[in-house]
Design a binder for these strands. Structure first.
Lengths: 180, 180
DNA sequence: AATATTGATTGAACGATGTTCAAGTTTGTT
DNA sequence: AACAAACTTGAACATCGTTCAATCAATATT
């Protein structure tokens, strides 16, 4: 339901009707809609993880791998738009903290960026690499997020991919030049 | 109310009580909560615009200006966290389109990135520059958005500023190197 | 086999929330 | 003073997530 109606289109009554039970029965499977959304998010993150892993195989240069990962992220977001958006649009009540399994899911993502980065900058510490990996990931995420937004001018997907590839290469080149 | 309770904490009844009128009277000032949020967003965007303009004065190099703009964006987001989040968290019904004045507000933002970029790459066309400006802006936005997120590990603001400055410089260096 | 216990299922009900609207009140004009 | 226009009110409506007493089914126990 999230996939084709968006997070806002998820209603417990519709959901109950679709799976064939009374609306109250939803709460035997799940404590909250919050938990429901988190569990859907967990599946989405795992599929995203697989999509990113699929492009890491046998690549010559770490640079090329990073570009391919960024493009794979973009493609996944475009092909799973609503599910991907649900990962970031959803906000918990400030007092209810995220369960640990959900936090773990999210941290796994940076791993994909971390490894090629570690190959590029072997002299850097684990912390430095972790921070840079997060920054790089965030930058690409921002480009995808605003690029796929309908709010402003919609960017055609091929143009967005080209921009992402260009800017990722520029970022890596710049990082290498600064390290030298 | 958005500023200190967040978008989700904005309730028409609370609002009516706070401004001293009946809950129905809110709809004489505004057609929707959507419009209300958009109007608050407009104010936020104008203040953001001013904050970015304030760092553009008499700067030597376009590079330094771009870094300062990125940091100013980060600082504004940190100091106006909930209002800034409201700009991006809010989603309209898919059938109700954004009013023109709201779209204009948002497009103005890219102007700040466009001008220093045009100084750096005078040979590029207006379209190319516009696209690159949007990409650069989006990348910084992504770093700020995920950096200020409490969901994952909270990043201390000084560390985030350092990361943004570093990656912006790297991106610009990379763009220049590729242009050569 | 008969009964008791446990657990799932139901759907009505509650509270919160955005929105509407008939009725009442104020304000402005002639 | 009399009328019209506009504003204000607060009750009512629809739609949510969520709860829960009652019912039902299944399983365990005697």
């Amino acid at each position: 339901m999230i996939a084709d109606r968006g997070l806002a289109g998820l209603k417990t009554r519709d959901l109950a009707r679709e799976i064939g039970c009374a609306n109250g029965a939803v709460y035997n499977l799940v404590a909250d809609v919050d938990e429901l959304i988190l569990r859907v998010g967990s599946r989405t993150l795992h599929r995203l993880d697989q999509a990113l892993s699929a492009v890491e195989s046998g690549e010559p240069s770490p640079q090329a791998t990073l570009v391919r990962i960024a493009l794979a992220y973009c493609d996944f977001a475009a092909e799973n738009l609503e599910l991907w958006r649900a990962l970031f649009e959803h906000r918990m009540d400030p007092d209810k903290p995220l369960p640990d399994w959900s936090i773990d899911d999210q941290l796994q993502l940076f791993r994909h960026v971390y490894q090629p980065l570690a190959a590029l900058f072997p002299q850097r510490s684990r912390e430095e690499l972790g921070i840079t990996a997060r920054s790089l990931f965030s930058a690409v995420h921002g480009m995808v997020a605003l690029g796929l937004e309908q709010k402003l001018v919609a960017v055609p997907l091929p143009a967005l991919r080209k921009e992402i590839a260009g800017l990722v290469r520029a970022m890596i080149d710049g990082l290498i030049a600064r390290a030298a």
